[in-house]
């Protein structure tokens, strides 16, 4: 039997990786975004979008380059996932609502790759090198947000939970700062709760940590949700016709 859930709608769409997904999970079912396009970060590796003839699409054209060691079956799964993501993106663009995005909140992945140069010593590299590396790493994500801004009235970027190991601190913080600087420069609003939920080194305090090693817990999500509402406005109780109801 289908039951209509009483829920409120944020007049915004959400795009992103697991950080956005965890916020979404925390809010639902009481509050939902109008539209979503979310998937684990690996689905946004490499050149994941194209912007041609006024459009913006998720593409799988370069997926082999992004996953050179993946076998054909895995590639097929990734292609299907990107097709689904593109369909979701087109819905988001058509809706023309503000977007909350965590695409590129990839400090964890970046810092791990930096450390891979010398697993025993993660503090090898100067901040200038880390920023230069991060500047290149974020290029695709910044480009996507720049294109996205051509289609929607506003974009807010959600920084992920700041949970760096000691030997990845510099790389992690360098990456975050580069994302903040680059996205701010193109007009993306930043949702940054590190000062509120972190210590004096911005590292997430234990009371905000989820049980995994990467994400924020419900308390963290709640604070993030409040900041999102500050930026996109309070939720409304008016479902759109197109909004799909969940079955419970």
């Amino acid at each position: 039997m289908k039951t209509r859930i009483e829920r409120a709608y944020l007049e915004a769409s959400v795009i992103g990786d697991s950080h956005a997904m965890s916020v979404w999970k925390h809010l639902a079912p009481a509050i939902v975004f109008r539209h979503s396009m979310t998937a684990p970060a690996k689905h946004f590796d490499g050149q994941f979008y194209t912007a041609e003839k006024g459009g913006l699409h998720i593409t799988s054209a370069m997926i082999r380059e992004a996953f050179p060691r993946a076998d054909a079956d895995v590639i097929q799964v990734m292609v299907k996932a990107r097709e689904r993501l593109d369909a979701q993106l087109q819905t988001i663009l058509a809706a023309g609502l503000p977007v909350v995005s965590s695409l590129g909140a990839a400090s964890y992945r970046f810092a791990r790759r930096v450390q891979s140069a010398d697993p025993d010593n993660g503090a090898l590299f100067s901040r200038k090198i880390l920023r230069a590396a991060a500047g290149d790493y974020v290029e695709t994500f910044v480009g996507f947000h720049e294109e996205l801004l051509r289609h929607v009235p506003a974009v807010s970027f959600l920084l992920g939970a700041c949970r760096y190991p000691d030997n990845q601190k510099d790389a992690w913080l360098a990456y975050d700062q580069v994302m903040i600087d680059r996205l701010s420069a193109i007009g993306v609003r930043i949702i940054d709760v590190r000062a509120q939920t972190g210590d004096d080194q911005l590292r997430l305090l234990p009371e905000y940590q989820a049980q995994d090693v990467l994400h924020g817990n419900d308390q963290w999500c709640q604070i993030v949700a409040e900041r999102i509402i500050d930026q996109v406005g309070p939720p409304t109780g008016q479902p759109q016709k197109a909004a799909q109801l969940q079955s419970k």
Partner: peptide, 15 residues
């Protein structure tokens, strides 16, 4: 002494 893998090739020699 290797550059971080995420540092683009073109920047490695500069550093």
């Amino acid at each position: 002494e290797k550059a971080p893998a995420v540092l683009p090739e073109k920047m490695r020699e500069q550093f």
